[in-house]
């Protein structure tokens, strides 16, 4: 049976799409047949992060309108043939599609793909309801910030109300130095507050921006950056492997290292 997972957060800009792109790619690399579905109608971005924006011919809406077949709308990744993107329409609003239609699309995808990742839009309105309509599992993406955690909590409540029980947490953009200085919530703090199982922690990493600039997910890098490694770890845990959390602890700066840094040594 295919796994249908919605990536959601409530708040925008916490890294849902980055997580979807990297997890999708990592799962495909691991030999899974993966479809990533952009449910952000009107503000699609998943195609950009995967570097597939120039290859979109049809969108999910065209499939629903009967203007093309589903396989014609799917954009197959050349780097990783196990991965396909079902693009959203960019020139339409989130109300252009209904939950029932989303279910039909996803159901059709389950015949070919064993992992379906749905990239939910921010918010808890129509776009969110569409994206959770067919999902059986959810990954909550949040950052250790008050607004992101609050919104995540709201979304967890909505998922529970919609009978999506398998809900797991990815904490994105953690800055270990700030946690050590007690200026940022720790993984334990966030998980304790949200009280759902932890799937992974992604450290804050400048390479994320570099990879989005190029349209190449981090997990494709030959030498994995910290965030890239963390995404691979998350994908392995998603497949049931036991992978320990990355060691993100940072030694508190000593007087001597501060002295060295001060004088540019």
């Amino acid at each position: 049976m295919s796994r249908i997972i919605v990536m959601t957060s409530g708040k925008g800009g916490v890294g849902k799409t980055t997580c979807t792109a990297n997890l999708g790619m990592a799962l495909a690399k691991a030999g899974q047949r993966v479809a990533v579905v952009d449910a952000d109608f009107g503000l699609r971005n998943l195609d950009l992060l995967l570097g597939l924006e120039n290859r979109i011919v049809y969108t999910a809406l065209d499939v629903l309108a009967g203007e093309c077949r589903l396989d014609q709308a799917l954009v197959k990744d050349k780097r990783q043939p196990n991965l396909a993107l079902l693009p959203a329409a960019q020139n339409r609003s989130k109300e252009a599609i209904k939950p029932e239609q989303m279910k039909r699309l996803i159901k059709a995808l389950t015949k070919v793909y064993n992992f379906i990742l749905i990239d939910s839009p921010a918010g808890i309105e129509m776009g969110f309801r569409n994206s959770i309509a067919a999902a059986r599992e959810a990954i909550i993406v949040t950052t250790p910030e008050i607004s992101a955690v609050r919104d995540a909590d709201r979304v967890i409540g909505l998922l529970e109300a919609n009978d999506i029980k398998a809900v797991r947490l990815v904490i994105n953009r953690l800055r270990p130095a700030m946690v050590a200085a007690e200026q940022m919530m720790s993984v334990k703090d966030v998980q304790g507050i949200l009280s759902i199982p932890l799937l992974g922690v992604i450290p804050d990493d400048e390479q994320v921006i570099v990879s989005t600039n190029k349209g190449e997910p981090l997990v494709l890098d030959e030498h994995l950056s910290p965030a890239g490694t963390a995404f691979i770890n998350v994908s392995q845990r998603l497949q049931g492997e036991k992978v320990p959390l990355m060691d993100l602890s940072i030694q508190k700066e000593s007087f001597f290292t501060r002295l060295k840094r001060l004088f540019g040594a």
Partner: peptide, 25 residues
């Protein structure tokens, strides 16, 4: 050199504020 003299731990503030706001939510 010695690190900030007074160290206001904003982490405690955010946890306290979140706990209250989430209880209401």
């Amino acid at each position: 050199l010695f690190g900030s003299s007074e160290d206001p731990h904003s982490r405690d503030d955010v946890k306290r504020r979140l706990q209250i706001v989430l209880a209401h939510d």
